[in-house]
Design a protein around this nucleic acid. Structure first.
Lengths: 258, 258
DNA sequence: CGTGGCCTTGAAGAATCTCAAATAATGTGG
DNA sequence: CCACATTATTTGAGATTCTTCAAGGCCACG
Protein backbone atom coordinates (compact mmCIF):
# COMPACT_ATOMS: atom_id res chain seq x y z
CA UNK A 1 0.00 0.00 0.00
CA UNK A 2 1.08 3.54 -0.66
CA UNK A 3 4.05 2.72 -2.83
CA UNK A 4 5.11 6.29 -3.38
CA UNK A 5 7.63 5.33 -5.96
CA UNK A 6 9.12 8.26 -7.73
CA UNK A 7 10.26 6.41 -10.78
CA UNK A 8 10.48 2.94 -12.30
CA UNK A 9 12.95 0.82 -10.39
CA UNK A 10 15.33 -1.84 -11.51
CA UNK A 11 16.28 -4.50 -9.02
CA UNK A 12 19.76 -3.91 -7.70
CA UNK A 13 20.72 -6.59 -5.28
CA UNK A 14 24.20 -5.18 -4.87
CA UNK A 15 25.70 -1.72 -5.03
CA UNK A 16 24.80 0.09 -8.16
CA UNK A 17 27.36 0.07 -10.90
CA UNK A 18 25.25 2.19 -13.23
CA UNK A 19 27.38 5.10 -14.26
CA UNK A 20 25.13 8.07 -14.71
CA UNK A 21 24.17 7.95 -18.36
CA UNK A 22 22.88 11.27 -19.61
CA UNK A 23 20.62 13.06 -17.17
CA UNK A 24 19.11 9.93 -15.70
CA UNK A 25 16.10 11.18 -13.73
CA UNK A 26 15.75 7.82 -12.01
CA UNK A 27 18.67 7.95 -9.65
CA UNK A 28 17.96 7.47 -5.99
CA UNK A 29 19.33 10.50 -4.23
CA UNK A 30 18.83 11.75 -0.73
CA UNK A 31 18.52 15.41 -1.58
CA UNK A 32 15.25 14.98 -3.40
CA UNK A 33 13.86 12.09 -1.35
CA UNK A 34 10.50 12.66 0.30
CA UNK A 35 11.85 10.91 3.40
CA UNK A 36 14.89 13.10 3.83
CA UNK A 37 13.71 14.64 7.07
CA UNK A 38 13.10 11.29 8.71
CA UNK A 39 16.02 9.35 7.33
CA UNK A 40 19.78 9.57 7.17
CA UNK A 41 19.94 13.21 5.98
CA UNK A 42 17.98 14.40 8.99
CA UNK A 43 20.05 17.13 10.61
CA UNK A 44 22.41 17.61 7.68
CA UNK A 45 22.73 20.79 5.68
CA UNK A 46 21.70 20.86 2.06
CA UNK A 47 25.31 20.62 0.94
CA UNK A 48 25.98 17.64 3.13
CA UNK A 49 22.88 15.90 1.93
CA UNK A 50 24.06 16.37 -1.60
CA UNK A 51 27.35 14.77 -0.68
CA UNK A 52 25.30 11.73 0.31
CA UNK A 53 24.00 11.65 -3.23
CA UNK A 54 27.44 10.61 -4.39
CA UNK A 55 26.96 7.26 -2.67
CA UNK A 56 24.49 6.12 -5.35
CA UNK A 57 22.34 3.87 -3.24
CA UNK A 58 21.14 0.63 -4.68
CA UNK A 59 17.42 0.27 -4.47
CA UNK A 60 15.75 -3.05 -3.79
CA UNK A 61 12.23 -4.34 -3.57
CA UNK A 62 11.54 -7.05 -1.06
CA UNK A 63 8.28 -8.94 -1.34
CA UNK A 64 6.16 -9.68 1.71
CA UNK A 65 7.64 -12.54 3.68
CA UNK A 66 11.07 -12.34 2.07
CA UNK A 67 14.13 -11.61 4.14
CA UNK A 68 16.47 -8.72 3.37
CA UNK A 69 19.38 -10.14 5.35
CA UNK A 70 19.88 -12.92 7.85
CA UNK A 71 21.65 -13.01 11.17
CA UNK A 72 25.16 -14.31 10.59
CA UNK A 73 25.47 -13.01 7.06
CA UNK A 74 28.36 -10.74 6.23
CA UNK A 75 27.56 -7.14 7.04
CA UNK A 76 28.10 -4.88 4.07
CA UNK A 77 25.09 -2.60 3.81
CA UNK A 78 22.81 -0.71 6.05
CA UNK A 79 19.33 -0.31 4.71
CA UNK A 80 16.94 2.61 4.78
CA UNK A 81 13.29 1.68 4.50
CA UNK A 82 11.64 3.53 1.63
CA UNK A 83 8.21 2.01 1.94
CA UNK A 84 6.56 -0.82 3.78
CA UNK A 85 7.34 -2.44 7.11
CA UNK A 86 10.04 -4.81 8.32
CA UNK A 87 10.62 -6.81 11.41
CA UNK A 88 14.04 -7.59 12.89
CA UNK A 89 14.43 -10.85 14.70
CA UNK A 90 16.92 -13.16 16.33
CA UNK A 91 16.79 -16.90 16.07
CA UNK A 92 16.63 -18.68 19.42
CA UNK A 93 17.65 -22.18 20.30
CA UNK A 94 14.74 -24.45 19.49
CA UNK A 95 13.97 -22.72 16.22
CA UNK A 96 11.80 -20.02 17.74
CA UNK A 97 12.31 -16.38 16.93
CA UNK A 98 12.49 -13.29 19.08
CA UNK A 99 11.29 -10.16 17.31
CA UNK A 100 13.52 -7.25 18.28
CA UNK A 101 11.96 -4.42 16.34
CA UNK A 102 9.66 -3.15 13.61
CA UNK A 103 10.88 -0.67 11.05
CA UNK A 104 9.01 1.70 8.81
CA UNK A 105 9.75 4.32 6.14
CA UNK A 106 12.79 6.44 6.89
CA UNK A 107 14.23 4.12 9.50
CA UNK A 108 17.68 2.59 9.19
CA UNK A 109 18.25 -1.14 9.63
CA UNK A 110 21.37 -3.17 10.07
CA UNK A 111 23.52 -1.01 12.33
CA UNK A 112 23.91 -3.93 14.70
CA UNK A 113 26.19 -5.46 12.09
CA UNK A 114 28.93 -2.88 12.59
CA UNK A 115 30.05 -4.51 15.83
CA UNK A 116 31.36 -7.74 14.33
CA UNK A 117 31.08 -7.31 10.59
CA UNK A 118 28.24 -9.77 10.66
CA UNK A 119 24.53 -9.13 10.91
CA UNK A 120 23.33 -9.78 14.44
CA UNK A 121 19.68 -10.05 13.45
CA UNK A 122 17.56 -10.85 10.42
CA UNK A 123 15.26 -8.46 8.62
CA UNK A 124 12.03 -9.73 7.07
CA UNK A 125 9.50 -7.76 5.04
CA UNK A 126 6.01 -7.78 6.54
CA UNK A 127 4.52 -6.47 3.33
CA UNK A 128 5.88 -5.53 -0.08
CA UNK A 129 8.66 -3.11 0.63
CA UNK A 130 11.38 -1.07 -0.89
CA UNK A 131 14.74 -0.12 0.62
CA UNK A 132 17.86 1.85 -0.16
CA UNK A 133 20.96 -0.31 0.27
CA UNK A 134 23.74 1.87 1.58
CA UNK A 135 27.25 0.50 1.41
CA UNK A 136 28.55 0.91 4.93
CA UNK A 137 32.18 1.13 3.91
CA UNK A 138 31.43 4.00 1.53
CA UNK A 139 29.21 5.65 4.08
CA UNK A 140 31.80 5.68 6.80
CA UNK A 141 34.43 6.81 4.33
CA UNK A 142 32.24 9.75 3.49
CA UNK A 143 31.64 10.33 7.18
CA UNK A 144 35.38 10.57 7.72
CA UNK A 145 35.34 13.61 5.48
CA UNK A 146 32.26 15.27 6.87
CA UNK A 147 32.25 15.82 10.59
CA UNK A 148 28.55 16.41 10.49
CA UNK A 149 27.70 13.17 8.79
CA UNK A 150 29.86 11.37 11.28
CA UNK A 151 27.81 12.96 14.00
CA UNK A 152 24.55 12.02 12.39
CA UNK A 153 25.67 8.43 12.10
CA UNK A 154 26.78 8.36 15.71
CA UNK A 155 23.44 9.79 16.73
CA UNK A 156 21.51 7.22 14.78
CA UNK A 157 23.36 4.44 16.52
CA UNK A 158 22.94 6.07 19.87
CA UNK A 159 19.25 6.51 19.21
CA UNK A 160 19.04 2.81 18.59
CA UNK A 161 20.61 2.24 22.00
CA UNK A 162 18.10 4.55 23.62
CA UNK A 163 15.23 2.86 21.83
CA UNK A 164 16.30 -0.48 23.17
CA UNK A 165 16.67 0.99 26.63
CA UNK A 166 13.03 1.86 26.69
CA UNK A 167 12.10 -1.50 25.33
CA UNK A 168 14.04 -3.12 28.14
CA UNK A 169 12.16 -1.00 30.57
CA UNK A 170 8.96 -2.15 28.98
CA UNK A 171 9.93 -5.80 29.12
CA UNK A 172 11.40 -5.53 32.57
CA UNK A 173 8.66 -3.77 34.40
CA UNK A 174 5.33 -3.66 32.64
CA UNK A 175 2.31 -5.93 32.56
CA UNK A 176 0.45 -7.03 29.46
CA UNK A 177 -1.85 -4.01 29.19
CA UNK A 178 0.94 -1.52 29.70
CA UNK A 179 3.07 -3.26 27.11
CA UNK A 180 0.42 -3.31 24.44
CA UNK A 181 -0.58 0.28 25.17
CA UNK A 182 3.05 1.38 24.88
CA UNK A 183 3.38 -0.51 21.62
CA UNK A 184 0.26 1.02 20.09
CA UNK A 185 1.12 4.54 21.21
CA UNK A 186 4.60 4.20 19.74
CA UNK A 187 3.18 2.94 16.47
CA UNK A 188 0.65 5.73 16.43
CA UNK A 189 3.37 8.34 16.91
CA UNK A 190 5.54 6.98 14.17
CA UNK A 191 2.66 6.80 11.74
CA UNK A 192 1.75 10.37 12.55
CA UNK A 193 5.32 11.49 11.88
CA UNK A 194 4.96 9.94 8.45
CA UNK A 195 1.75 11.69 7.63
CA UNK A 196 -0.62 8.82 8.32
CA UNK A 197 -3.52 8.82 10.72
CA UNK A 198 -2.31 8.30 14.27
CA UNK A 199 -5.66 6.94 15.37
CA UNK A 200 -6.58 4.44 12.68
CA UNK A 201 -4.23 2.01 11.02
CA UNK A 202 -3.53 -1.49 9.84
CA UNK A 203 -1.16 -3.66 11.81
CA UNK A 204 1.34 -5.20 9.47
CA UNK A 205 2.44 -7.81 11.96
CA UNK A 206 0.69 -10.85 13.38
CA UNK A 207 -0.39 -11.33 16.99
CA UNK A 208 2.47 -13.76 17.39
CA UNK A 209 4.99 -11.17 16.20
CA UNK A 210 3.60 -8.51 18.49
CA UNK A 211 3.72 -11.01 21.32
CA UNK A 212 7.29 -11.98 20.63
CA UNK A 213 8.28 -8.34 20.53
CA UNK A 214 6.48 -7.54 23.76
CA UNK A 215 7.44 -10.68 25.60
CA UNK A 216 4.01 -12.26 25.82
CA UNK A 217 2.10 -15.06 24.16
CA UNK A 218 -0.12 -14.42 21.17
CA UNK A 219 -3.22 -15.40 23.13
CA UNK A 220 -2.38 -12.78 25.72
CA UNK A 221 -1.98 -10.17 23.00
CA UNK A 222 -5.38 -11.10 21.65
CA UNK A 223 -7.01 -11.00 25.06
CA UNK A 224 -5.43 -7.65 25.83
CA UNK A 225 -6.79 -6.23 22.58
CA UNK A 226 -10.21 -7.48 23.60
CA UNK A 227 -9.82 -5.95 27.04
CA UNK A 228 -8.96 -2.57 25.52
CA UNK A 229 -11.99 -2.84 23.30
CA UNK A 230 -14.22 -3.55 26.28
CA UNK A 231 -12.72 -0.57 28.08
CA UNK A 232 -13.68 1.47 25.01
CA UNK A 233 -10.10 2.50 24.43
CA UNK A 234 -10.04 1.23 20.89
CA UNK A 235 -11.79 -0.78 18.21
CA UNK A 236 -10.00 -3.79 16.84
CA UNK A 237 -10.98 -5.99 13.99
CA UNK A 238 -8.20 -8.37 13.20
CA UNK A 239 -5.41 -6.14 11.91
CA UNK A 240 -7.42 -2.98 11.76
CA UNK A 241 -7.11 -0.72 14.79
CA UNK A 242 -8.91 2.48 15.62
CA UNK A 243 -7.85 4.28 18.77
CA UNK A 244 -10.92 5.81 20.39
CA UNK A 245 -9.49 7.16 23.61
CA UNK A 246 -5.85 8.05 23.29
CA UNK A 247 -5.73 9.62 26.72
CA UNK A 248 -7.16 6.51 28.27
CA UNK A 249 -4.60 4.45 26.41
CA UNK A 250 -1.87 6.76 27.65
CA UNK A 251 -3.11 6.29 31.18
CA UNK A 252 -3.07 2.52 30.71
CA UNK A 253 0.52 2.89 29.64
CA UNK A 254 1.43 5.08 32.55
CA UNK A 255 -0.24 2.78 35.03
CA UNK A 256 3.28 2.33 36.31
CA UNK A 257 2.17 3.93 39.51
CA UNK A 258 2.27 2.02 42.72
CA UNK B 1 38.92 -3.91 46.35
CA UNK B 2 41.77 -4.36 43.94
CA UNK B 3 42.38 -0.69 43.25
CA UNK B 4 45.22 -1.25 40.84
CA UNK B 5 46.07 2.39 40.73
CA UNK B 6 49.23 3.14 38.86
CA UNK B 7 49.93 6.44 40.49
CA UNK B 8 48.51 8.90 42.99
CA UNK B 9 45.42 10.53 41.62
CA UNK B 10 44.05 14.00 42.00
CA UNK B 11 40.34 14.50 41.74
CA UNK B 12 39.45 16.05 38.42
CA UNK B 13 35.74 16.65 38.20
CA UNK B 14 36.02 18.21 34.77
CA UNK B 15 38.38 17.79 31.85
CA UNK B 16 41.94 18.13 32.89
CA UNK B 17 43.54 21.46 32.25
CA UNK B 18 46.88 20.41 33.67
CA UNK B 19 49.46 21.23 31.08
CA UNK B 20 52.17 18.65 31.27
CA UNK B 21 54.68 20.12 33.68
CA UNK B 22 58.05 18.52 33.42
CA UNK B 23 57.92 14.74 32.92
CA UNK B 24 54.79 14.21 34.96
CA UNK B 25 54.63 10.44 35.46
CA UNK B 26 51.05 10.64 36.70
CA UNK B 27 49.25 11.37 33.48
CA UNK B 28 46.47 9.04 32.50
CA UNK B 29 47.29 7.75 29.08
CA UNK B 30 45.82 4.90 27.11
CA UNK B 31 49.05 3.60 25.70
CA UNK B 32 50.35 2.46 29.06
CA UNK B 33 47.02 1.57 30.66
CA UNK B 34 46.64 -1.96 31.89
CA UNK B 35 43.11 -1.99 30.50
CA UNK B 36 44.05 -1.01 26.98
CA UNK B 37 43.07 -4.31 25.44
CA UNK B 38 39.60 -4.22 26.94
CA UNK B 39 38.85 -0.55 26.63
CA UNK B 40 38.69 2.11 23.95
CA UNK B 41 42.11 1.34 22.40
CA UNK B 42 41.11 -2.26 21.71
CA UNK B 43 41.72 -2.84 18.02
CA UNK B 44 43.83 0.25 17.48
CA UNK B 45 47.46 0.21 16.44
CA UNK B 46 50.11 1.48 18.81
CA UNK B 47 50.34 4.77 16.96
CA UNK B 48 46.62 5.31 17.09
CA UNK B 49 46.53 4.52 20.77
CA UNK B 50 49.19 7.12 21.33
CA UNK B 51 47.05 9.64 19.51
CA UNK B 52 44.40 8.94 22.15
CA UNK B 53 46.92 10.02 24.74
CA UNK B 54 46.60 13.55 23.45
CA UNK B 55 43.07 13.68 24.84
CA UNK B 56 44.38 13.87 28.41
CA UNK B 57 41.53 12.18 30.15
CA UNK B 58 40.32 13.52 33.42
CA UNK B 59 40.30 10.92 36.12
CA UNK B 60 37.63 10.79 38.78
CA UNK B 61 36.93 8.72 41.81
CA UNK B 62 33.33 8.01 42.63
CA UNK B 63 32.47 6.67 46.06
CA UNK B 64 30.08 3.78 46.53
CA UNK B 65 26.51 4.94 46.12
CA UNK B 66 27.39 8.21 44.37
CA UNK B 67 26.19 8.89 40.87
CA UNK B 68 28.54 9.74 38.04
CA UNK B 69 25.84 11.32 35.88
CA UNK B 70 22.08 11.46 35.89
CA UNK B 71 19.55 10.93 33.16
CA UNK B 72 18.65 14.29 31.70
CA UNK B 73 21.98 15.92 32.43
CA UNK B 74 23.88 17.46 29.56
CA UNK B 75 26.00 14.90 27.76
CA UNK B 76 29.59 15.95 27.53
CA UNK B 77 31.74 13.00 28.51
CA UNK B 78 31.78 9.31 28.01
CA UNK B 79 33.38 7.42 30.84
CA UNK B 80 35.66 4.42 30.86
CA UNK B 81 35.58 2.40 34.04
CA UNK B 82 39.05 2.03 35.50
CA UNK B 83 38.11 0.07 38.59
CA UNK B 84 34.98 -0.90 40.43
CA UNK B 85 31.46 -1.52 39.21
CA UNK B 86 28.64 0.74 38.06
CA UNK B 87 25.00 0.30 37.32
CA UNK B 88 23.08 2.23 34.67
CA UNK B 89 19.44 2.89 35.34
CA UNK B 90 16.39 4.75 34.14
CA UNK B 91 13.90 6.39 36.42
CA UNK B 92 10.34 5.18 35.96
CA UNK B 93 7.13 6.93 36.78
CA UNK B 94 6.39 6.28 40.42
CA UNK B 95 9.98 6.80 41.49
CA UNK B 96 11.10 3.27 40.80
CA UNK B 97 14.18 2.51 38.81
CA UNK B 98 14.89 0.12 35.99
CA UNK B 99 18.47 -1.09 35.92
CA UNK B 100 19.67 -1.30 32.34
CA UNK B 101 23.20 -2.54 32.79
CA UNK B 102 26.23 -3.19 34.95
CA UNK B 103 29.64 -1.96 33.95
CA UNK B 104 33.08 -3.06 34.99
CA UNK B 105 36.72 -2.16 34.30
CA UNK B 106 37.40 -1.33 30.68
CA UNK B 107 33.80 -0.77 29.73
CA UNK B 108 32.53 2.49 28.30
CA UNK B 109 29.50 4.27 29.74
CA UNK B 110 27.40 7.11 28.47
CA UNK B 111 27.17 6.44 24.74
CA UNK B 112 23.40 6.65 24.98
CA UNK B 113 23.87 10.40 25.45
CA UNK B 114 25.08 10.93 21.90
CA UNK B 115 21.57 10.66 20.52
CA UNK B 116 20.15 13.80 22.09
CA UNK B 117 23.08 15.50 23.76
CA UNK B 118 21.54 14.49 27.05
CA UNK B 119 22.22 11.44 29.16
CA UNK B 120 19.44 8.91 28.71
CA UNK B 121 20.31 6.98 31.85
CA UNK B 122 22.05 7.51 35.16
CA UNK B 123 25.25 5.84 36.30
CA UNK B 124 25.74 4.96 39.96
CA UNK B 125 28.81 3.45 41.59
CA UNK B 126 28.13 0.15 43.33
CA UNK B 127 31.45 0.32 45.17
CA UNK B 128 34.31 2.80 45.30
CA UNK B 129 35.27 3.33 41.68
CA UNK B 130 37.50 5.23 39.38
CA UNK B 131 36.81 6.35 35.82
CA UNK B 132 38.42 8.17 32.94
CA UNK B 133 36.25 11.05 31.76
CA UNK B 134 36.62 11.36 28.02
CA UNK B 135 35.39 14.53 26.41
CA UNK B 136 33.12 13.32 23.66
CA UNK B 137 33.60 16.38 21.49
CA UNK B 138 37.36 15.93 21.53
CA UNK B 139 37.03 12.23 20.98
CA UNK B 140 34.91 12.54 17.89
CA UNK B 141 37.13 15.30 16.60
CA UNK B 142 40.04 12.96 16.90
CA UNK B 143 37.99 10.22 15.29
CA UNK B 144 37.37 12.48 12.31
CA UNK B 145 41.13 12.40 11.71
CA UNK B 146 41.66 8.72 12.29
CA UNK B 147 39.52 6.41 10.26
CA UNK B 148 40.41 3.56 12.53
CA UNK B 149 39.33 5.30 15.70
CA UNK B 150 36.09 6.22 14.03
CA UNK B 151 35.57 2.57 13.29
CA UNK B 152 36.37 1.55 16.84
CA UNK B 153 33.86 4.04 18.17
CA UNK B 154 31.19 2.87 15.76
CA UNK B 155 31.90 -0.70 16.80
CA UNK B 156 31.59 0.13 20.45
CA UNK B 157 28.19 1.66 19.89
CA UNK B 158 27.09 -1.20 17.73
CA UNK B 159 28.25 -3.64 20.35
CA UNK B 160 26.05 -1.86 22.81
CA UNK B 161 23.11 -2.38 20.47
CA UNK B 162 23.92 -6.07 20.16
CA UNK B 163 24.27 -6.38 23.92
CA UNK B 164 20.83 -4.92 24.40
CA UNK B 165 19.45 -7.21 21.73
CA UNK B 166 20.42 -10.21 23.72
CA UNK B 167 19.06 -8.68 26.87
CA UNK B 168 15.75 -8.18 25.14
CA UNK B 169 15.80 -11.78 24.12
CA UNK B 170 16.43 -12.69 27.71
CA UNK B 171 13.63 -10.52 29.00
CA UNK B 172 11.27 -11.51 26.25
CA UNK B 173 11.56 -15.22 26.32
CA UNK B 174 13.24 -16.67 29.37
CA UNK B 175 12.02 -17.81 32.75
CA UNK B 176 13.54 -16.94 36.10
CA UNK B 177 16.15 -19.71 36.17
CA UNK B 178 17.27 -19.07 32.63
CA UNK B 179 17.59 -15.37 33.31
CA UNK B 180 19.66 -15.73 36.42
CA UNK B 181 21.85 -18.40 34.81
CA UNK B 182 22.45 -16.11 31.83
CA UNK B 183 23.31 -13.26 34.15
CA UNK B 184 25.78 -15.29 36.20
CA UNK B 185 27.45 -16.78 33.16
CA UNK B 186 27.85 -13.36 31.60
CA UNK B 187 29.33 -12.00 34.80
CA UNK B 188 31.64 -14.97 35.06
CA UNK B 189 32.90 -14.43 31.52
CA UNK B 190 33.58 -10.76 32.02
CA UNK B 191 35.42 -11.39 35.27
CA UNK B 192 37.52 -14.00 33.58
CA UNK B 193 38.42 -11.59 30.79
CA UNK B 194 39.69 -9.25 33.50
CA UNK B 195 41.85 -11.84 35.14
CA UNK B 196 39.56 -12.66 38.05
CA UNK B 197 38.24 -16.05 38.94
CA UNK B 198 35.29 -16.95 36.73
CA UNK B 199 33.91 -19.35 39.29
CA UNK B 200 34.06 -17.44 42.55
CA UNK B 201 33.20 -13.78 43.02
CA UNK B 202 31.40 -11.14 45.00
CA UNK B 203 28.24 -9.64 43.62
CA UNK B 204 28.47 -5.90 43.80
CA UNK B 205 24.76 -5.40 43.30
CA UNK B 206 21.78 -6.14 45.50
CA UNK B 207 19.07 -8.70 44.82
CA UNK B 208 16.75 -5.86 43.97
CA UNK B 209 19.17 -4.51 41.38
CA UNK B 210 19.66 -7.93 39.83
CA UNK B 211 15.91 -8.35 39.79
CA UNK B 212 15.31 -5.01 38.15
CA UNK B 213 17.90 -5.81 35.50
CA UNK B 214 16.45 -9.25 34.84
CA UNK B 215 12.81 -8.24 35.02
CA UNK B 216 11.89 -10.12 38.17
CA UNK B 217 11.21 -9.34 41.81
CA UNK B 218 13.96 -9.53 44.38
CA UNK B 219 12.24 -12.39 46.17
CA UNK B 220 12.26 -14.37 42.95
CA UNK B 221 15.96 -13.70 42.52
CA UNK B 222 16.59 -14.95 46.02
CA UNK B 223 14.48 -18.06 45.51
CA UNK B 224 16.20 -18.81 42.23
CA UNK B 225 19.60 -18.55 43.91
CA UNK B 226 18.37 -21.02 46.50
CA UNK B 227 17.07 -23.32 43.78
CA UNK B 228 20.46 -23.31 42.05
CA UNK B 229 22.10 -24.09 45.34
CA UNK B 230 19.78 -27.04 45.90
CA UNK B 231 20.54 -28.27 42.38
CA UNK B 232 24.21 -28.12 43.38
CA UNK B 233 24.98 -25.69 40.57
CA UNK B 234 26.49 -23.11 42.89
CA UNK B 235 27.06 -22.00 46.47
CA UNK B 236 25.63 -18.66 47.50
CA UNK B 237 26.11 -16.81 50.70
CA UNK B 238 24.62 -13.37 50.42
CA UNK B 239 26.83 -11.63 47.88
CA UNK B 240 29.44 -14.33 47.63
CA UNK B 241 28.94 -16.77 44.76
CA UNK B 242 30.87 -19.89 43.88
CA UNK B 243 29.90 -21.67 40.68
CA UNK B 244 30.20 -25.40 41.21
CA UNK B 245 28.83 -26.78 37.98
CA UNK B 246 29.30 -24.39 35.12
CA UNK B 247 28.06 -26.91 32.57
CA UNK B 248 24.91 -27.44 34.53
CA UNK B 249 24.42 -23.71 34.74
CA UNK B 250 24.95 -23.46 31.00
CA UNK B 251 22.32 -26.12 30.47
CA UNK B 252 19.92 -24.22 32.71
CA UNK B 253 20.55 -21.21 30.52
CA UNK B 254 20.02 -23.12 27.32
CA UNK B 255 16.84 -24.72 28.58
CA UNK B 256 15.20 -22.69 25.84
CA UNK B 257 14.21 -25.91 24.18
CA UNK B 258 10.58 -26.73 23.96
C1' DC C 1 -16.21 -25.26 -1.33
C1' DG C 2 -12.60 -27.18 1.23
C1' DT C 3 -8.05 -26.08 3.39
C1' DG C 4 -4.82 -23.66 6.05
C1' DG C 5 -3.53 -19.72 8.52
C1' DC C 6 -4.71 -16.42 11.86
C1' DC C 7 -7.48 -14.86 15.50
C1' DT C 8 -10.52 -15.29 19.57
C1' DT C 9 -12.12 -17.32 23.69
C1' DG C 10 -12.50 -20.59 27.63
C1' DA C 11 -10.67 -23.33 31.40
C1' DA C 12 -7.03 -25.30 33.96
C1' DG C 13 -2.42 -25.00 35.39
C1' DA C 14 2.11 -22.91 36.30
C1' DA C 15 5.09 -19.21 37.24
C1' DT C 16 5.72 -15.18 39.44
C1' DC C 17 4.26 -11.57 42.55
C1' DT C 18 2.57 -9.76 46.91
C1' DC C 19 2.39 -9.69 51.61
C1' DA C 20 4.36 -11.04 55.81
C1' DA C 21 7.65 -12.43 59.12
C1' DA C 22 12.17 -13.95 60.76
C1' DT C 23 17.14 -13.49 60.52
C1' DA C 24 21.40 -11.53 59.46
C1' DA C 25 24.32 -7.67 58.43
C1' DT C 26 25.39 -2.80 58.79
C1' DG C 27 25.60 1.59 60.44
C1' DT C 28 24.56 5.30 64.17
C1' DG C 29 24.80 7.75 68.19
C1' DG C 30 25.58 7.82 72.78
C1' DC D 1 31.94 -0.55 72.56
C1' DC D 2 27.10 -1.43 73.00
C1' DA D 3 22.09 -0.75 72.09
C1' DC D 4 19.26 0.47 68.57
C1' DA D 5 17.68 1.63 64.03
C1' DT D 6 18.05 0.44 59.35
C1' DT D 7 18.71 -2.35 55.47
C1' DA D 8 19.38 -6.70 52.90
C1' DT D 9 18.22 -11.40 52.45
C1' DT D 10 15.60 -15.58 52.92
C1' DT D 11 11.47 -18.19 53.22
C1' DG D 12 6.45 -19.20 53.48
C1' DA D 13 1.61 -18.91 51.89
C1' DG D 14 -1.89 -17.12 49.25
C1' DA D 15 -3.23 -14.13 45.29
C1' DT D 16 -2.64 -12.86 40.60
C1' DT D 17 -1.12 -12.85 36.08
C1' DC D 18 0.13 -15.13 32.30
C1' DT D 19 0.68 -19.43 29.80
C1' DT D 20 -0.86 -23.77 28.00
C1' DC D 21 -4.03 -26.58 25.88
C1' DA D 22 -8.11 -26.92 23.32
C1' DA D 23 -11.89 -25.73 20.39
C1' DG D 24 -14.25 -22.93 17.20
C1' DG D 25 -14.79 -18.99 13.89
C1' DC D 26 -13.34 -16.14 10.16
C1' DC D 27 -11.10 -15.16 5.91
C1' DA D 28 -8.26 -15.66 1.82
C1' DC D 29 -6.99 -18.62 -1.65
C1' DG D 30 -6.74 -22.36 -4.69
Amino acid sequence: MSFATIAPITLQPLPSRTRELAVAPLKTVCSSCHLRDLCLPCGLTGDETESLDRLKFGRRKIAAGQTLYRAGARFEFVYAVRSGTFKSSLLLAGGREQVSGFHMAGELMGLDGVANGVHASSATALEDTEVCAIHYGNLSELAAQSGNLQMVLARLMSREIVREHSLMMLLGSMNAEERLAAFLLNLSQRLKARGYSPSEFHLRMSRAEIGSYLGMKLETVSRTFSAFQQQRLLDVDKKHVRIIDIDGLTRAFEARVH
